[in-house]
Every structure is written in structure tokens, then in C-alpha cells.
Design a protein around this nucleic acid. Structure first.
Lengths: 333, 333
DNA sequence: ATGAAAGCGCTAACAT
DNA sequence: ATGTTAGCGCTTTCAT
């Protein structure tokens, strides 16, 4: 590996000058600059990042901790974060917490030991990380820890819009498959769900059963099975993730129910898969890229300005597709 | 940030001794060791990783470049790689090449500039990376560049098994939705497909149309649409990814065809989603975790032994589920 | 077994 | 505008 000293010698200048040329931040005589650039090229010189980080106290690296990359929504988040970070000259090191608080904590520790410049944290369900105002700046993304500033979608508003849409369609028995009860994210979507129901006059107010469960396929499948086999079968299900919605689709198929003829299903996230199912999924679109961008931006400024003190809420958009429609005739009011 | 010097002072020993205690690789008098350990604890000392990397010439970090994390198979790979790397004390920095050769190349460059200890590369479709025997050890995973050593599944064998199974079921018009023609991976699966067909005596040899396309939902959807609307509609489709198979499922639904009654569909990968669709997907299971493990293991040894010279092939297992069955009666032979 | 000190490769402050 | 040099924090050799 060629060092800055060798470049300096070859170019016939001092290491200081070479450094100035490389970092383009100081005036260097044109002739020297060229000599240095040529030497760099000929020796194929790459500055040693460890030395630079040691000196500058920065790693040009962010950590990203997600509950599970194999959930399509998080995969999307990872993809955008990676892309946007690269645009800014940063790398992303990944931490897959597997929905476990202890693993999440381990990654926070590792990332702060490694002196990353910041961490994007999508908290896994069960634990509030200690040490959040420790050595590494942390920004919470997607789902809030109660009371912590957050970069996320308007979960409540998105849910309310979706359910209002179902009500307008004529549904009066609407169920909600929510996320794990411990997550504020789930609470917020449920509260949007309830708000939509509450908007109707009391006497025709729809009934709204809620089931809290995992955000994944299995959670949605089981919850929908229970709902659809229970008393007063709902004519519409509002699931809090597309994965749950897919599980619900599967449950409907299991029971010989057609979607949307017998039951309407609405999801949340609008992952790519949503448009490739039969039927295509009606769902609440989150602007993941924008969320990632804002969070990254914030992290980049964090060293100078300190960490976020206020939450940033990004709007969602309902995508109406085939999996929702009017309720069966006998249920119309 | 507390430095090793401060620890040494507090413990009343030299920095050398502190270093020896931290790295547990040298004999240190028990009394000193304890004094050092206490000082470390009380000061909450964490060795500076940049200084260590600078000295040791290692980063304890691997890069992982995938065509697209949002493809469930790659998400799975990333998850396992992350987990297994953490077990070994390594971190994974991600590079999402977006199926583009130029971005892939950019990540290879970035990763070697950053002096990562190794790179796991799942090549994107169109470009052979230059500089493969450059500064950073690279291991190719999943899909081969012609002539390069590779850690991957037995693509050919997996395909052959799947198609043989369809033939045994009685299918005689079997089509193959393959990956992009430029990938050896696709070629190998097609060759397995053809080998299975060729095993039958000439006069009853099934016809086997092949369509090369993207590995994603859209590719599968379009290919299946064309296949199912073409002359001599196949009674079974062997798709080269679960995503393609899902697209094919959608195509069948579009055309009012029931699966598996009118057409059987088989996928490849066995991503988690495969068991959560209606109908559940028959598919070829890849042992992603094992592949990731072997590749990582190899990378860890690479610095001493040099990079792989031979490919490692991991067996696959056919998972029979609901999306496949005997052909419609009128097609039985 | 331990301390002293060189040196990894760079940046930035200082002197000219 | 440029060269010289201290020092970032660690590991490791060398002496003892």
C-alpha cells in the first residue's frame, strides 16, 4: 500500500502539499497540484481511511438497525438508506436485530464502539435501548419509543384515511389487525382506525374489533382466521402491514371467501409485492425514501447541531386497488 | 473519549501492559491485570477502532454487494450474512447495486478504498467487475461469473429435480421461466430443466419452452402471460425464482386459470413468503445460511490462504406444496 | 513480565 | 503558498 509520503517524494513536494491537493481545501500552485495528481495516478494512491478517521474523528459510516430485513418494508428502507448514504459519501453498516431487544442493544454497543458517525434505529418491539444519548448520535425511524423524537409516517392519519374509505364504501363491520400492542406505532394506527369509526353518528357507528399481533404473514394469517370465523364476520379488514394483509388474503382463501366480494382487505406500506398479488392490494403508501432521506440529513448535521428534539411526520397516500370493494349486498345498510 | 494512556495512568502501569491485558495475548501479573481491568471499567474505556485498524491493518468489516435487497432471496442472504458475521466479530457494510454493473463497480471501489477485510459479491447481471484480484479479497456468491470460483447452490441439480417431479406427476407440456440469459445461473437452471426432459424416451419427450426474463414479479408475470396465452398452453410452469412464480400466479388469476387445477407452478428459492400465499408454492429450497457461512468462513481465512480457487456447491431440496399437482385430465397421457 | 519508544498514515497548526 | 512537525490512539519490538 502506497502512503502519502511516497506520493510526496515522487511529486517532489511535502506531504502537507499532497494532503492539501487531495482534500481540495487549500490553495496550491497549479504546477504542484498537477505533479501531485500525476503521482497519485501513477502510484494508484488511496488515502488510508483508518489514518484519516483517526485524525478527523469521523468514519463516514452510519449504522442502520432494523427489526428484520426480510420484511419487505424494511428491505425497502435499507435499499433507500444505502442509496442515499452513498450519494453523500457515507456507507451503511447493517444491524438486523431479529425483533429482539438484546440483539438491538448489542448492535448499538458495537456501533458506538466502532465510532460510527450516527445510527438509524428502527426499534424492535420489546426494549428501550439504554445509552441512547451515549457516544453515538441515534435517530429513531418508523416507530417511536414513547417520548423520543422520531422520523416516521403519519401512522394515525394513514389509518384514518384507509378506514374512512372503507366506511364510504358502505362497510359497517370493520376489523383491524394491528401490530404488537407494545409499539406506539401500532397504538397510533389503531387510534386512526377508531377515529374514523367515531366520525359516524352514534346510531350507525360501525363495530370495530381490534387484534394485536406480529407484523408478519403468520400474524396476519392467524388474526384473520380468528376474525373471519368469529361471530359477526367483518366485511372488511384493515391490516397494519402488507404482510399481515397477505396473511389475511391467505386466510380468506382457506375459508373459501372471495376478496373483495365476501371481504375487503386493506394493507399498510405499499411494498412492491402489493401490486403483484391476485388480487392487487389496496394499501396505505408510506414514503420510505423521504423518511430515510430526512433521517440521514439530520444525522449528517447532528454532529454540529446535536440530535433531533422534535419528531418529523411524513404524509401517506391511500392506494386503492382490487382487494377492496363494497360489502356483500346482504350487509348493505 | 478516554484513551489507553489515561487507563494506564489510572492503573499505574504502562500503556503496553494495558494493551496486553486488553488483547489477552500476553502474560501479565495478576495484580496488574486486575488494576487494569478496574480502570477500564471505571473509565468505561473502549479502544479506538481507527487506531487499532491503522496499526493492525484490518477493519473487522466485510462488504456485501447484492443486486437488490428487496428481492426476498437477497434479503434472506443479507440477514444470515449479518448474523453470522456478528458471531465472528465482524460487521457487514451493504452495497445495493440495483442490478446495475456501474453501481456494483462503484461499491467494489469504495470497499477496497475503505480497506475492508473482504467482499461478498452477488454479481448484478451485466458487468464483470474489473480489478477482482485487486486490493480486497472478493468471494462470488450465488451466481457465477464465467470461470470464477463461486459459493452457490446446485442450480442445475435443483432445477432437474423440480422438473423431474413435474414429469412424474404426468405433465408433458412444461415451460420454464428463466432468469436473464446473460447469467450463468440462469443457464444452469435451464440446463437442469432440459436434462430432466431429456431423461424420457424420445417419443414421449415433453416439449419445453424457455423464456428468459428478469427474476422479479414483473418478469414472471409477463412471461407467464405469454406462455399461458400462447399455442399449446403448458400444464406446468417451472419458474426460476419465487418472485417469478408469484408473478405467474398472478398471470394465471388474470386469465381465470386455477392453480394447480389448470396449471401447476413451481418456484425456486423457498423464501418465507412461499408458504404464505394462496396456494402455497412448491419450490426448490436453497440453503442460504449455509452458503453465507461458507463464504464468510472462506473470507476470514482468505488473508492467510489467498482467495478461493474452486467453487463450492450446496445441495437444494424440493419443497412440494399446493401450487403443483397432476395435469388436467384431458392432458393426461 | 514490564516499560519505553517507534511507527502505522494521515491532517492541521505553525512557521516561513 | 509551502514545508515541517506534533499528534490522533493503538500495537509491538526491543531492552531490561
Amino acid at each position: 500500500m502506497v502512503s502519502i509520503g511516497e506520493v510526496a517524494r515522487k511529486a517532489g513536494v511535502s506531504v502537507g502539499t499532497v494532503s492539501r491537493v487531495i482534500n481540495r481545501n487549500a490553495a496550491v500552485r497549479a504546477e504542484y497540484r498537477e505533479r501531485v495528481e500525476r503521482a497519485v495516478r501513477e502510484l494508484d494512491y488511496r488515502p488510508n481511511p483508518f489514518a484519516r478517521s483517526l485524525r478527523r474523528q469521523e468514519s463516514l459510516t452510519f449504522g442502520l438497525i432494523v427489526p428484520d430485513v426480510t420484511y419487505p418494508f424494511f428491505a425497502e428502507l435499507v435499499k433507500h438508506a444505502d442509496d442515499l448514504a452513498a450519494l453523500r459519501g457515507y456507507c451503511i453498516v447493517l444491524g438486523n436485530s431479529n425483533n429482539r431487544g438484546d440483539i438491538q442493544q448489542r448492535y448499538i454497543d458495537i456501533f458506538s464502539e466502532r465510532r460510527l458517525d450516527g445510527v438509524l434505529l428502527v426499534p424492535s418491539m420489546d426494549t428501550r435501548p439504554r445509552d441512547l444519548d451515549g457516544s453515538v448520535p441515534v435517530v429513531i425511524v418508523d416507530r417511536g419509543l414513547k417520548g423520543f423524537p422520531l422520523f416516521a409516517s403519519d401512522h394515525r392519519g394513514g389509518a384514518e384515511t384507509a378506514v374512512t374509505y372503507l366506511i364510504r364504501l358502505g362497510h359497517r363491520r370493520i376489523a383491524c389487525i394491528a401490530g404488537p400492542e407494545t409499539l406506539t406505532l401500532a397504538q397510533e394506527r389503531v387510534s386512526g382506525f377508531r377515529a374514523a369509526l367515531a366520525a359516524l353518528p352514534k346510531r350507525q357507528r360501525p363495530t370495530g374489533q381490534v387484534r394485536f399481533t406480529e407484523f408478519d404473514y403468520v400474524g396476519g394469517h392467524n388474526a384473520a382466521l380468528a376474525l373471519l370465523q368469529g361471530p359477526a364476520r367483518p366485511t372488511a379488514i384493515f391490516a397494519n402491514s402488507d404482510q399481515q394483509a397477505i396473511g389475511a388474503l391467505r386466510a380468506a382463501a382457506d375459508l373459501g371467501l372471495a376478496v373483495p366480494r365476501d371481504v375487503s382487505i386493506v394493507g399498510f406500506d405499499d411494498v412492491p409485492l402489493a401490486t403483484h398479488l391476485a388480487p392487487r392490494l389496496t394499501t396505505v403508501r408510506q414514503d420510505v425514501r423521504r423518511i430515510a432521506d430526512l433521517a440521514l440529513q439530520h444525522l449528517e448535521k447532528a454532529r454540529t447541531n446535536g440530535i433531533a428534539r422534535r419528531s418529523v411526520i411524513v404524509p401517506t397516500v391511500l392506494q386503492v386497488r382490487e382487494s377492496s370493494g363494497p360489502p356483500p349486498p346482504e350487509n348493505k345498510q
